[in-house]
Write a protein that binds this DNA or RNA. Structure first.
Lengths: 209, 209
DNA sequence: TCATTCGTTGACTCGTCAGTCAACGATAGC
DNA sequence: GCTATCGTTGACTGACGAGTCAACGAATGA
């Protein structure tokens, strides 16, 4: 009847339904440990329908990762366009990632645990895409060094690794409940990440206090 | 005849042989992707013998991890005993881990890729053991804060995460060849890790140059 | 020399699960 | 109302691989 209930729209909704169910199942049981039937059950659809919308179990995870990672790359690139200090750019990126986790922990858990931190099995396919993020961050650092904001005795690549590594480690800490994650904690993490990294990168590091 | 060729000694050697072969296979193919028969083939023994020395495929990885991680915990605790500056302690720990990788990349690759960074599947079992390392590092930071060497506006737990996270990210970069790893690179990484983290932790951060 | 022990062998079993497929049924167009 | 389309169903298959087990044989000790 209405356009919103047309054949193709309903199909798109079902696809989304399966995708969202898959995220919950992957987050709960892990990609390898779960069965495709678990995803179908979680979504409330028949087993076969999963294969109507996706060609394989892998493709579901691919889709989940690419959807979100593309968003991240887009945000990093956009932040770098802004005419602000390098430190502020890094703060915005850290904030975006932390907020992404707070807003939807399951998706971030799946991306980190099953792709980013699983470069051996699944991440291998996406290594290039993951690397793009490192490179964009390294570029921000390089610009900061060129403008004299950041010290030059740490390579941009290394700095990007330390920056992203710290963020990922913090999210991992939350995911596995090694670190408290009250709204207060998640908010202060944004500051601590940038403070810790930047006061080691600034030409003259001064404690913020 | 000689004690070195006694029954029990020969058995211990075979066990070691299988363990070393498993490390190579895990590093090459990944824990999930390899078959137990691959390990047997690599070790040059019959399939069944693997199950004579280990009760399951999991137990092999357990053994590999625990052997090396216990060593790491021991070193961290020992370093903390030394009457030196916190920064020097962190430098020694970073050096030990980097040297471990340089000396035997396969073992470190397996531990990081299959256990440390796989907290969802396998690492879950070892979460407590992994956490011990964070806690020991956090204690070093806390002492450094108490003695006035390190700034106090970053929590020890957070600092430990940033420190270890940076190291792990660098090793991961080497493992997946995102980062150059000539002897010169690995040596300079030791310095860069500590510089990056500490000049953000020191009361007054000054570039080392 | 014979018997016992135990390291060693590899073919086999058995459960699991990704992916297939034939059939069903609701909607849309005629 | 009739037919074609296509979303939907779930039982089934085929491959794969962890773990078992019965039998073998080389040291050891009597």
């Amino acid at each position: 009847m209405a356009a919103s209930t047309s054949r193709s729209q309903a199909a798109a909704d079902k696809r989304r339904l399966i995708l969202d169910a898959a995220v919950r199942v992957f987050a709960r049981q892990g990609f390898h440990a779960c069965r495709v039937s678990d995803i179908a059950d979680e979504a409330g659809v028949a087993y076969g329908l999963v294969y109507h919308y996706f060609s394989s179990k892998d493709e579901i995870l691919d889709t989940v990762f690419l959807e979100r990672w593309s968003m991240l790359l887009h945000v990093i690139a956009e932040v770098d366009e802004r005419p602000v200090a390098a430190r502020e750019k890094l703060r915005d990126i850290a904030s975006f990632i932390v907020d992404s986790y707070v807003h939807d922990p399951d998706v971030m858990k799946v991306i980190i645990v099953e792709v980013t931190r699983a470069a051996n099995s699944f991440g291998r396919t996406h290594l290039a895409k993951i690397r793009e993020a490192y490179d964009l961050i390294a570029r921000i650092v390089a610009k900061g060094q060129a403008s004299g904001e950041l010290r030059t005795d740490v390579s941009p690549d290394f700095a990007a690794l330390a920056f992203y590594g710290t963020i990922e480690q913090v999210l991992t800490g939350w995911i596995f409940e090694l670190l408290p994650q009250t709204p207060r904690d998640t908010e202060s993490a944004k500051v601590q990440i940038v403070d810790t990294i930047c006061d080691g990168l600034d030409v003259i590091g001064l404690p913020s206090a």
